[in-house]
């Protein structure tokens, strides 16, 4: 039986939740096809400490690549290493559809001359077939595809598979880069926080988002306060707001920003333009606060409050704090 590979994403030595999602997906397939799960974990010295978590989520083997040359994301060396591995007869490979994952999956597939399935929300991989679903047309159409290339290379949309524990051996095996990590043509020279949300929009179970209806940058404090009251919330924004420089571009949610699907999405002073909805309409529960009863955001909101967000937010923040006992 051929094995399934999962790429375990890290950033500056920290493992990302997306790594556990990829391993969980690989485990699901391996359980059906009978292969083993091999997780590739790469980074600077010390990154191997995350191997145990990968084993706990279903990796039979964790292939650890520790090297100074991988402290920052090293796209060419990683893609070359993964392509070389995958050439050895894997059935499928899972990546996260994150900023890094999108980049790496495309490079790896390209290095092998194979197509891949991007941003997948649902998949069925057997020994000889692979079908996937992925949203297109500004997320307004669900496209189903067959991928006939082997290995079937897939990037998974955040949250499509939730991390699930399933303890396996997690045997650690050291591997080396397929090419000299210093000889690459493309070099990442810095990785820095962009001063936006502390919790990542893709990982936070709750997102509080603000739009132009907040009137000025300073009023985002009210959004941040509500996020802080939840304790597990990230702050998002519309393009109207990121364009005006009230928030960094990395906070933008929508067609051309982040695609998110938290348990709870609270839209404050957001009209609900189609391009914004494209990024958040799959959220499980949507709350909208808008002073215009006719605003399109109310059409997708489970719970809407008509009124001035600047008045409502402090009251809501206090109520959430009380409910959380914080």
């Amino acid at each position: 039986m051929s094995n399934i590979l999962a790429f375990a994403e890290t950033r500056l030595g920290k493992m990302r939740r997306a790594a556990l999602e990829a391993v969980t997906a690989a485990r699901q397939v391996a359980d059906q096809t009978g292969g083993q799960v091999h997780a590739v974990l790469a980074g600077g010295p010390g990154v191997g400490e995350h191997a145990a978590a990968l084993g706990a989520h279903g990796a039979d083997v964790v292939l650890v690549l520790e090297h100074d040359g991988f402290t920052h994301y090293n796209p060419e060396a990683l893609a070359a290493t993964l392509a070389a591995r995958l050439g050895d007869g894997y059935r499928a490979a899972f990546f996260a559809a994150s900023a890094q994952g999108h980049d790496l999956v495309a490079r790896t597939a390209a290095a092998m001359g194979l197509p891949y399935a991007s941003d997948v929300t649902d998949f069925a991989v057997t020994a000889d077939s692979c079908s996937v679903k992925h949203p297109g047309f500004t997320n307004k159409v669900i496209q189903s595809f067959s991928l006939t290339a082997t290995p079937a290379i897939i990037s998974l949309r955040t949250g499509a598979v939730l991390p699930k524990e399933s303890a396996k051996a997690g045997a650690v095996e050291a591997i080396t880069s397929a090419i000299d990590p210093a000889s690459v043509r493309v070099k990442v020279t810095a990785t820095e926080a962009s001063g936006g949300a502390k919790l990542d929009l893709g990982e936070a179970p709750v997102i509080v988002s603000g739009g132009r209806g907040l009137k000025e940058a300073g009023n985002f404090k009210l959004v941040e306060d509500l996020a802080a009251a939840f304790g597990n919330a990230a702050v998002g924004a519309t393009r109207a707001v990121t364009d005006d420089g009230w928030r960094p571009h990395s906070d933008q949610i929508g067609q051309t920003g982040r695609l998110v699907n938290p348990d709870l999405y609270i839209a404050c002073g957001i009209s609900g333009a189609i391009q914004h909805l494209a990024g958040m309409r799959t959220s499980k529960t949507i709350v909208a606060i808008n002073k215009d009863r006719e605003a399109p955001i109310f059409k997708v909101a489970d719970y809407g409050i008509v009124g001035d967000a600047l008045e409502i937010l402090p009251v809501l923040t206090a109520a959430v704090r009380q409910a959380k006992g914080s």
Binding site: K299, D302, I305, V306, I312
Partner: peptide
């Protein structure tokens, strides 16, 4: 969806 539950700060307790 499309459910409006109330108006202004008074609607907050129902939302919670």
């Amino acid at each position: 969806g499309g459910r409006i539950i109330g108006e202004g700060p008074d609607a907050v307790p129902e939302l919670v």
